[in-house]
Design a protein around this nucleic acid. Structure first.
Lengths: 195, 195
DNA sequence: CCTCCTATTAAGACCTGGTGCTAACCTAAA
DNA sequence: TTTAGGTTAGCACCAGGTCTTAATAGGAGG
């Protein structure tokens, strides 16, 4: 039609990255061609059918989602002594890194350290009040980050926790977290939780 | 046969929580009953068919995964002037909060701010070198967090960026991020990226 | 014993979103 | 004009269901 075959295929690709749950019929209507053409295009571009795409997304994310969001501790908790220290390992998967450089996005290191700090406090409601972070070296795809958190100061309900994260002995990240343990009553009314 | 109907249904439930991608036929074989019985059991237990389950898992995780991992900016970027400021909105969904208290997990605020800081720098490789954070008030389920990042100091390739995140005008989070813009050459060899 | 009830199973028609194949069609260039 | 590339249509088939109806097994109660 008005457009060339290749630009239509580009368009198809981008439609599917926007929304991978489109049927061939929907794609056909969006691109003003027949369903048969969409099928040929998918073949050419090696794009599986809707059900296959759905299945891939579902199974890819099924376990991974848990690791970043579901569990209380981000990374795998391997040792903990409540009120003293905690250690976890985070394996850098390809969906945690920046596309171009394959460098781990900073918030994962933060999340690992932060959740470890909260785990040490081991209180029903423990919130981070403040933190100071240093990123020393980029962490890249398939590195394994070992984070060790240690309680250094406890002042009433304020816990100051030092986190050091290393890849093969080398320090990549440091953080000092102040975590506040809340009383039940204070929950949702913690205007004073400033470190 | 040896078991009762209710225990079979319990078993069915637990099989599906272990692996939600089982067909009726697989379930029937696992439980030693006919496919028809499995269908009846699913009806009774209000369990959708395989394809529906797959779709639910996929779409539930699809946008969420993106929001935490896939896209370059976490939250929805609504305004940006490169080298000056950037604003994004983050809607707090139920998988971002702590189970018990429904309070947003700290690393999401960090991630929103951090990715905004990196976006301002707009350099092919921009990494966080250090950060200081303050959490002022807990953010809860279904809040909308508006984060505004502003460049305050630029010293060669070091950018200091101030982020303030608010829920309904009220300050909930503050961060000061130092972001380093890397030369191509320095990539992967950034031992000196200490702010 | 037979009857009633529940659970289970089987059989058949239909649905969606495809696959794979063949045949026809249109247009534009050689 | 012939030929080739791209597009479309039609048909049979598939998985993994749906919904409905009907047949069967196995007690418990009379």
């Amino acid at each position: 039609m008005g457009i060339t075959r290749n630009s239509r295929r580009d368009e198809l690709q981008s439609l599917l990255t926007q929304d991978p749950f489109l049927t061939d019929l929907q794609l056909a209507e969006a691109l003003g061609v027949s369903v048969a053409t969409i099928r040929l295009d998918r073949m050419a571009l090696d794009i599986p059918e809707l059900r296959e795409r759905t299945k891939i997304i579902a199974s890819k994310t099924y376990t991974k989602l848990k690791s970043i969001q579901g569990s209380e501790v981000i990374g795998e908790l391997i040792d903990i002594e409540v009120g003293a220290y905690a250690i976890s390992i985070l394996s850098v998967l390809d969906d945690m890194v920046l596309e171009r450089t394959k460098i781990l996005r900073g918030h994962h290191l933060f999340a690992q350290g932060n959740s470890l700090a909260v785990a040490i406090v081991n209180w029903h409601t423990a919130l981070t009040a403040s933190a100071k972070l240093r990123y020393h070296r980029p962490v890249t795809l398939s590195d394994r980050v070992i984070a060790k958190a240690s309680l250094i100061v406890k002042d009433k309900n304020h816990y100051t926790i030092q986190v050091e994260s290393r890849v093969q002995q080398e320090l990549v990240f440091q953080g000092e977290f102040v975590v506040v343990a809340l009383n039940e009553k204070e929950e949702g009314d913690s205007h004073k939780n400033r470190s």
